[in-house]
Simulated assay, not measured.
Amino acid sequence: MKAKIESPYMNTAETLDYLRICRKTLYNWIGQGIVTVYKIGNANRFKRSELDDALRPVKPIM
């Protein structure tokens, strides 16, 4: 049996489900530079590790 290899990239539907946001919010975040979108062929792809990093809370410097 072959092991399933998980791609580091997600399509738009997977990204919306992963982040639990609506399409409008995702495209607002792209416009604000919070999320990076990659064009692969004619499809938009989002890198899971970058989504995790972008949404990780930042600790204030004291």
Rank of each mutant, 00 (worst) to 15 (best):
M10E: 05
K24G: 01
R56P: 00
D52C: 02
K59R: 12
Y18C: 04
D52P: 01
K4D: 07
A54R: 04
T25W: 02
C22S: 10
V37M: 09
A3M: 13
K39F: 03
K39D: 06
P57K: 06
P60I: 08
A3R: 13
L16C: 10
I34R: 06
I30C: 05
F46L: 04
I5V: 14
T15I: 10
A54C: 09
M1Y: 04
K47D: 01
S7P: 02
M62L: 12
K4F: 15
Y18V: 07
T15G: 04
G41A: 06
A43P: 01
L16I: 12
L26E: 07
Y9L: 15
A54Q: 04
R45H: 08
L19E: 07
G33R: 06
D17Q: 15
Q32L: 13
Y18G: 02
N44Q: 09
R23Q: 13
K39T: 13
K2N: 09
Y27P: 06
M62W: 13
L16H: 07
F46K: 05
M1G: 15
R48A: 10
K24T: 11
M62Q: 09
V35G: 00
K24N: 10
R48W: 05
K24I: 08
P60N: 04
A3K: 15
L19F: 13
Y38H: 14
E14R: 00
I34N: 01
V35Y: 00
T15R: 04
L26V: 11
L19P: 09
T25P: 01
M1P: 07
E14G: 05
Y27N: 12
E6L: 12
I5H: 06
F46V: 05
K59C: 04
Q32S: 11
A13Y: 08
R45C: 02
I40F: 05
C22K: 15
A43D: 12
R23M: 05
I5P: 00
K59Y: 10
S49Q: 10
L16E: 06
L55G: 11
V37I: 08
R20Y: 06
L26S: 10
N44F: 10
D52R: 10
A13L: 14
S7T: 07
Y38G: 00
E6K: 07
N44C: 09
W29F: 09
R45I: 03
K4T: 14
K39G: 03
I5Q: 09
P60E: 06
L26M: 10
A43Q: 14
G33P: 07
I40V: 15
W29C: 03
R20E: 12
Y18N: 03
R20T: 13
M10T: 05
D52T: 13
L55H: 13
R48F: 03
L55N: 14
A3E: 15
E50A: 12
G31Q: 08
A43S: 13
I61R: 08
T15Y: 09
E14M: 05
P8M: 08
D53T: 11
Y9R: 02
W29R: 13
A3W: 08
C22V: 10
D53P: 00
R45Q: 11
K39A: 10
C22H: 12
M62E: 11
L51N: 11
K4C: 07
D53L: 09
R23N: 14
A54M: 02
W29A: 08
V58C: 01
L51V: 14
E6R: 08
V35R: 00
R48Y: 03
A13H: 08
G41Y: 04
A13T: 15
D52Y: 02
M1C: 07
A54F: 01
L16G: 07
I30Y: 00
Q32H: 08
L55M: 15
R20P: 01
T15N: 05
